[in-house]
Design a binder for these strands. Structure first.
Lengths: 200, 200
DNA sequence: GACATAATAGGAACACGTTCCACTTCGTCC
DNA sequence: GGACGAAGTGGAACGTGTTCCTATTATGTC
């Protein structure tokens, strides 16, 4: 009993909280992946994560926070994947397009999930500013890394260009998830924008 | 009575519908201007427009349609205003920045309204594609007009540049209405982007 | 081990977008 | 001017995000 207890104590504590948080984000991910934004219903997330509704709201104060946090986790994964291998391409433009296409392809492979996460990102207000900022930084960092691999002291122009590309990427993604443009148009538009911005 | 009837027939008919539509959009505008997206409640709009809830939904099938239509009306006004006078500035970049700043200043003068309309625009799905497309075309046309006043045969690059600037503008607006960046940052970012894209 | 505090469960209740229905009024056609 | 379909009214009802409350369980302290 004491052993069981000590084990329990080890497994629970803040580990229990990490576990709950993970279960919640996993449930969010799964529901979003199956049915998009509308399918991520707070009661459904709570049920699937085996957590009470009140607990869900204790961990994530709103549906938007929940989805943006899930988006953040996805971006961290994508960024980690990108860091594993050097980015192919001889010019900054080629490398940036590679990163954009790879990331976009990943997102478009799971349209419902992407719809849910993009919607949430676009609908967030200032109370989610912190989470949004993390995602924005990750995106900018992915892009500057593609532009100048290994370089740490970036010029203001580099950062500005990365931000503009990020803006275009977001807009294109929104147009795509809302069914206003096709995947091909999205890709072409992003490629255009990169060539306009990185003429080297 | 027959005179009254004929008058009534003239005043009502589709004129009554135009009037209802206008009252609804006016109510939307006023509520949005006072309290933003959340304050535009369908029951409140219906009350203020002196229209039944079912009638409101007959004219605009969702809150998003309603707000995007209101946004469209605002853009038409802004575009008409711009067409009145020639755009000052010696270079394309100067003229584009003038247009962006003027339009943005107009929007930022009514933050709640802008928040409501931008939210709706970003949250729209494919069922609102038609209305969104109108707004997008207006924006692109305003920007190409600023780049090349009076020119009608634009190159693909011109249109692509206008679209990228539009994307940046939207992203900046979203960041601003969601409290993630200040008006000054928004302006600076847009100015940066224009200079990156229009180096003439 | 007993207790104080915090976290969770379970679920009722509320708000607002949306749908639906029964009834009335309007516009049109004979 | 009577009949008929379309449009409008008024309001109930439903779904889902969010809040709130009480009972129960876990955690940390003496």
């Amino acid at each position: 009993m004491s052993i069981a207890n000590s084990l329990t104590v080890d497994d629970l504590g803040s580990a229990a909280q990490r576990d709950r948080r993970k279960r919640i984000l996993d449930a969010t991910y799964e529901l979003a992946s199956e049915g998009g934004f509308d399918a991520v219903q707070m009661r459904a997330v709570a049920d699937q994560a085996e957590v009470a509704l009140g607990t869900l709201y204790r961990y994530f104060p709103s549906k938007i926070h929940l989805l943006v946090s899930a988006l953040g986790r996805e971006f961290e994964r994508a960024e980690a994947l990108l860091r594993e291998k050097p980015i192919p391409g001889d010019t900054a433009a080629e490398r940036v397009i590679f990163v954009l296409k790879k990331t976009t392809r990943g997102l478009q492979g799971d349209p419902h999930l992407t719809e849910a996460l993009t919607r949430a990102f676009m609908f967030a207000d200032s109370s989610v500013a912190h989470e949004i900022h993390s995602v924005g930084m990750l995106m900018t960092s992915m892009l500057t890394h593609a532009m100048h691999p290994g370089v740490t002291d970036l010029t203001e122009d580099d950062v500005a260009i990365a931000r503009v590309i990020g803006d275009v990427w977001l807009s294109a993604l929104v147009a795509w998830v809302t069914g206003r443009s096709t995947a091909a148009e999205t890709g072409a538009h992003m490629e255009n924008a990169v060539h306009l911005l990185l003429r080297d």
